[in-house]
Protein backbone atom coordinates (compact mmCIF):
# COMPACT_ATOMS: atom_id res chain seq x y z
CA UNK A 1 0.00 0.00 0.00
CA UNK A 2 2.82 2.35 0.91
CA UNK A 3 4.57 1.23 -2.22
CA UNK A 4 1.70 2.19 -4.44
CA UNK A 5 1.36 5.55 -2.74
CA UNK A 6 4.99 6.17 -3.39
CA UNK A 7 4.68 5.06 -6.99
CA UNK A 8 1.69 7.26 -7.62
CA UNK A 9 3.43 10.20 -6.07
CA UNK A 10 6.57 9.52 -8.07
CA UNK A 11 4.56 9.39 -11.28
CA UNK A 12 2.72 12.61 -10.59
CA UNK A 13 5.95 14.37 -9.73
CA UNK A 14 7.67 13.04 -12.81
CA UNK A 15 4.89 14.25 -15.07
CA UNK A 16 4.96 17.67 -13.48
CA UNK A 17 8.64 17.68 -14.20
CA UNK A 18 8.05 16.64 -17.79
CA UNK A 19 5.24 19.10 -18.15
CA UNK A 20 7.35 21.96 -16.89
CA UNK A 21 10.56 21.27 -18.72
CA UNK A 22 9.77 23.63 -21.53
CA UNK A 23 12.83 25.03 -23.11
CA UNK A 24 12.36 27.96 -25.40
CA UNK A 25 12.63 26.60 -28.90
CA UNK A 26 15.44 28.20 -30.83
CA UNK A 27 14.57 29.92 -34.03
CA UNK A 28 14.88 27.42 -36.88
CA UNK A 29 17.36 27.98 -39.67
CA UNK A 30 16.13 28.80 -43.14
CA UNK A 31 16.34 26.15 -45.83
CA UNK A 32 17.79 27.21 -49.11
CA UNK A 33 16.63 24.79 -51.69
CA UNK A 34 19.68 23.03 -52.98
CA UNK A 35 18.45 21.48 -56.15
CA UNK A 36 15.89 23.93 -57.38
CA UNK A 37 16.64 25.31 -60.81
CA UNK A 38 15.64 28.93 -60.99
CA UNK A 39 17.24 29.93 -64.24
CA UNK A 40 17.74 28.38 -67.65
CA UNK A 41 19.88 30.35 -70.06
CA UNK A 42 20.39 29.28 -73.65
CA UNK A 43 23.15 31.11 -75.49
CA UNK A 44 23.14 30.88 -79.28
CA UNK A 45 26.37 32.10 -80.87
CA UNK A 46 26.52 32.35 -84.69
CA UNK A 47 29.29 30.16 -86.05
CA UNK A 48 30.14 32.58 -88.84
CA UNK A 49 30.51 35.45 -86.40
CA UNK A 50 28.53 37.70 -88.74
CA UNK A 51 25.25 38.22 -86.89
CA UNK A 52 24.52 38.89 -83.22
CA UNK A 53 24.47 36.26 -80.48
CA UNK A 54 21.04 35.45 -79.01
CA UNK A 55 20.22 34.78 -75.38
CA UNK A 56 17.05 33.00 -74.29
CA UNK A 57 16.30 32.94 -70.59
CA UNK A 58 13.57 31.64 -68.30
CA UNK A 59 14.01 32.78 -64.72
CA UNK A 60 11.72 31.84 -61.79
CA UNK A 61 13.27 33.08 -58.56
CA UNK A 62 10.47 31.87 -56.29
CA UNK A 63 10.59 28.30 -57.61
CA UNK A 64 7.15 26.76 -57.16
CA UNK A 65 5.85 29.99 -55.58
CA UNK A 66 3.08 32.04 -57.19
CA UNK A 67 5.32 34.24 -59.36
CA UNK A 68 5.53 33.09 -62.95
CA UNK A 69 8.87 32.64 -64.70
CA UNK A 70 10.26 35.74 -66.38
CA UNK A 71 10.99 34.94 -70.01
CA UNK A 72 13.58 36.76 -72.11
CA UNK A 73 13.62 35.84 -75.75
CA UNK A 74 15.36 36.87 -78.94
CA UNK A 75 15.09 36.58 -82.69
CA UNK A 76 17.21 34.49 -85.00
CA UNK A 77 18.66 35.46 -88.36
CA UNK A 78 17.61 33.41 -91.35
CA UNK A 79 20.17 30.99 -92.74
CA UNK A 80 22.52 31.34 -89.79
CA UNK A 81 24.00 28.35 -87.96
CA UNK A 82 24.24 28.85 -84.21
CA UNK A 83 26.29 26.99 -81.67
CA UNK A 84 24.05 26.58 -78.62
CA UNK A 85 24.89 25.99 -74.98
CA UNK A 86 22.65 25.70 -71.95
CA UNK A 87 23.42 26.91 -68.42
CA UNK A 88 21.26 26.06 -65.40
CA UNK A 89 21.50 28.07 -62.19
CA UNK A 90 20.08 27.99 -58.71
CA UNK A 91 19.95 31.69 -57.88
CA UNK A 92 18.30 31.23 -54.47
CA UNK A 93 21.82 30.63 -53.23
CA UNK A 94 24.44 33.33 -53.01
CA UNK A 95 26.63 32.97 -55.03
CA UNK A 96 24.39 31.20 -57.50
CA UNK A 97 25.00 27.48 -57.87
CA UNK A 98 25.76 26.09 -61.31
CA UNK A 99 23.43 23.12 -61.77
CA UNK A 100 24.76 22.41 -65.28
CA UNK A 101 27.82 20.88 -63.62
CA UNK A 102 25.65 18.44 -61.68
CA UNK A 103 23.75 17.52 -64.83
CA UNK A 104 26.97 16.95 -66.73
CA UNK A 105 28.38 14.83 -63.90
CA UNK A 106 25.29 12.62 -64.13
CA UNK A 107 25.09 12.93 -67.88
CA UNK A 108 23.83 9.36 -68.38
CA UNK A 109 20.71 10.18 -66.36
CA UNK A 110 19.84 13.39 -68.21
CA UNK A 111 18.97 14.58 -71.68
CA UNK A 112 17.84 17.87 -73.21
CA UNK A 113 15.22 17.88 -75.95
CA UNK A 114 14.39 20.77 -78.29
CA UNK A 115 10.96 21.02 -79.87
CA UNK A 116 9.87 23.70 -82.31
CA UNK A 117 6.24 24.35 -83.19
CA UNK A 118 3.98 26.76 -85.00
CA UNK A 119 5.93 26.62 -88.23
CA UNK A 120 9.14 27.87 -86.67
CA UNK A 121 11.75 26.79 -89.15
CA UNK A 122 14.73 25.74 -87.07
CA UNK A 123 16.61 22.45 -86.99
CA UNK A 124 18.75 21.16 -84.16
CA UNK A 125 21.53 18.60 -84.26
CA UNK A 126 24.95 17.77 -82.91
CA UNK A 127 24.07 17.30 -79.25
CA UNK A 128 27.11 16.73 -77.08
CA UNK A 129 27.30 13.14 -75.80
CA UNK A 130 27.01 11.75 -72.26
CA UNK A 131 29.73 9.59 -70.74
CA UNK A 132 28.40 6.55 -72.56
CA UNK A 133 28.16 8.16 -75.97
CA UNK A 134 24.40 8.78 -75.98
CA UNK A 135 22.94 12.26 -76.34
CA UNK A 136 23.11 14.73 -73.44
CA UNK A 137 22.36 17.97 -75.24
CA UNK A 138 23.67 20.75 -73.00
CA UNK A 139 25.50 21.82 -76.17
CA UNK A 140 24.05 21.64 -79.65
CA UNK A 141 23.88 23.18 -83.09
CA UNK A 142 20.87 25.09 -84.35
CA UNK A 143 20.20 26.18 -87.91
CA UNK A 144 17.66 28.95 -88.48
CA UNK A 145 15.84 28.26 -91.76
CA UNK A 146 13.33 30.44 -93.63
CA UNK A 147 11.58 33.46 -92.15
CA UNK A 148 8.98 32.10 -89.73
CA UNK A 149 7.72 32.32 -86.15
CA UNK A 150 6.61 29.90 -83.45
CA UNK A 151 7.83 28.44 -80.20
CA UNK A 152 10.94 26.63 -79.19
CA UNK A 153 10.73 24.41 -76.09
CA UNK A 154 13.65 23.08 -74.07
CA UNK A 155 12.87 20.01 -72.00
CA UNK A 156 15.28 18.38 -69.56
CA UNK A 157 14.38 14.80 -68.74
CA UNK A 158 15.72 12.99 -65.70
CA UNK A 159 16.35 9.27 -66.13
CA UNK A 160 15.09 8.97 -69.73
CA UNK A 161 15.39 5.84 -71.81
CA UNK A 162 18.65 6.05 -73.78
CA UNK A 163 19.02 5.94 -76.70
CA UNK A 164 15.57 7.15 -77.75
CA UNK A 165 13.83 8.47 -80.83
CA UNK A 166 12.68 11.71 -79.23
CA UNK A 167 10.68 13.23 -76.44
CA UNK A 168 7.64 10.98 -76.84
CA UNK A 169 9.73 7.86 -76.61
CA UNK A 170 12.14 8.97 -73.88
CA UNK A 171 10.01 8.60 -70.74
CA UNK A 172 11.60 9.70 -67.47
CA UNK A 173 10.63 12.70 -65.46
CA UNK A 174 10.61 16.34 -66.60
CA UNK A 175 13.05 18.51 -64.67
CA UNK A 176 12.62 21.57 -66.87
CA UNK A 177 10.15 22.66 -69.50
CA UNK A 178 10.84 26.16 -70.87
CA UNK A 179 9.05 27.54 -73.92
CA UNK A 180 10.15 30.64 -75.90
CA UNK A 181 8.32 32.57 -78.61
CA UNK A 182 10.79 33.08 -81.40
CA UNK A 183 10.92 34.65 -84.84
CA UNK A 184 13.33 33.89 -87.60
CA UNK A 185 13.88 37.17 -89.46
Amino acid sequence: MKKIKFLTLALVVSTLFIGCSKDDAPQPEAVNEEEVITTLTVTLVPTDGGSAAVTLQSRDLDGDGPDEPVITTGNLATGVTYSGSIVLLNETEDPAEDITEEVEEESVEHQFFYTSTGGLDVTTSGENPDSEGDKLGTEFTLVAGAVSSGTLTFTLRHEPKKPNTGLEDAGGESDIIATFNIEVQ
Partner: peptide, 21 residues
Protein backbone atom coordinates in the same frame (compact mmCIF):
# COMPACT_ATOMS: atom_id res chain seq x y z
CA UNK B 1 -0.35 16.95 -24.10
CA UNK B 2 2.84 18.53 -25.32
CA UNK B 3 3.94 18.04 -28.89
CA UNK B 4 7.03 19.14 -30.71
CA UNK B 5 7.63 18.88 -34.42
CA UNK B 6 11.09 19.26 -35.82
CA UNK B 7 11.66 19.51 -39.55
CA UNK B 8 15.30 18.82 -40.27
CA UNK B 9 16.69 21.64 -42.46
CA UNK B 10 19.59 19.54 -43.76
CA UNK B 11 17.29 17.98 -46.35
CA UNK B 12 17.91 20.96 -48.62
CA UNK B 13 14.18 21.09 -49.37
CA UNK B 14 11.82 23.70 -47.91
CA UNK B 15 9.82 22.30 -45.00
CA UNK B 16 6.38 20.96 -45.87
CA UNK B 17 5.36 20.98 -42.21
CA UNK B 18 6.96 23.75 -40.12
CA UNK B 19 8.66 23.45 -36.74
CA UNK B 20 6.13 23.84 -33.97
CA UNK B 21 5.33 23.23 -30.34
Amino acid sequence: KYQHNFANPSTGVRRLIPDYE
